[in-house]
Simulated scan of single mutants.
Amino acid sequence: MVRQLIHDRWKVVILDNLSTGNRRLAQGCELVEGNLGDCHLLENLFTEHSIAAVMHFAAFSQVGASVVNPLQYYQNNLAETVTLLDTMVRHEVLYFIFSSTAAVYGEPEFTPITEVHPCQPTSPYGNTKMAVERMLADCAAAYGLKYAALRYFNAAGADDSAQIGEMHDPETHLIPIVLKVALGQIRNIQVFGTDYPTKDGTCIRDYVHVNDLAQAHLLALQALFDGASSAVYNLGSSNGYTVKEVIQKTEQVTGRKIPVVEAPRGREIPLY
């Protein structure tokens, strides 16, 4: 996102506590290390900089971890966003792009899932994102906040430069794990569940490339600047692929055999 903003000649200030970030990747902009919940830090940032808009990517995002430690998720994802929005409103910064999630929908009642699908999250992670979306709507009504909430499906991929990409520790995302197997860094890929009602029994995900996500943020921001109303948008490719299809495509592209170990459902940590 920062690279695309800089390419479009925006001046960017990053606020990141680096709990999952990497300092060396913040190039071409100012990096401020700290938390969104630090009201004094935020006050200084909004006083020192002429900020036009805020993009929020600062949530914890592992569904399984949110079930184990929900208070950590409510503190980081919700409470600290309250502090951010309070500072924005006081400084009259009223454009906000929110990285939301398809997890707000819960179990699908129909597919493809559209923005009018009922929102019934099934995890603390999804609940925190839904709570922020509701807060944004209330702030829009009360303070004139203009926002776009972008509900991702499964973010994936790396920049074409090959200089930045997925860097999780531990790695839990399917595509990087499959590629690590192809590279010989991991012995096999575990497939959790082969009894789904799909063409090959494995679950289906809609993968959307990170650069497409960044472009969507730019489009949403420009739309708000041009006078568009606040809105919620799904971000996906509209095409689903099973786990086995991802593995087979990786074998085809890399020319390497990907050993598979089948395991029961329920042991995986689903991510959005």
Rank of each mutant, 00 (worst) to 15 (best):
H209T: 04
L213T: 01
A216F: 05
L213V: 10
D226G: 13
V208M: 04
T198S: 12
D226I: 10
T198K: 08
Y207A: 00
T194A: 12
D212A: 08
A214W: 01
T202V: 08
L213G: 02
A220I: 00
T202R: 04
I204M: 06
R205H: 06
K199R: 13
L224P: 03
A223S: 14
A214S: 10
F225P: 06
A216T: 09
A216H: 07
K199T: 12
L224N: 03
T202M: 05
R205W: 02
V210S: 03
T194R: 13
P197S: 10
A223N: 09
Q222R: 15
D226Q: 14
D200Y: 11
A216E: 05
L213Y: 00
Q215W: 08
T198W: 04
D195W: 13
L221T: 05
A223R: 08
N211S: 13
D206R: 01
L224Y: 01
H209Y: 08
D200V: 11
Y207M: 02
Q215R: 14
P197I: 11
R205T: 00
L221Y: 06
D212Q: 13
L218Q: 09
G201M: 09
A220C: 09
H217A: 09
D200R: 14
T194S: 13
G201T: 12
V210F: 00
L224C: 06
F225L: 14
T198P: 00
Y196G: 09
T202D: 05
Y196R: 15
L224K: 05
T198R: 07
H209L: 02
R205C: 00
V208S: 00
Y207K: 00
D212F: 04
L224E: 05
D212N: 12
A223D: 07
L218H: 10
L218I: 13
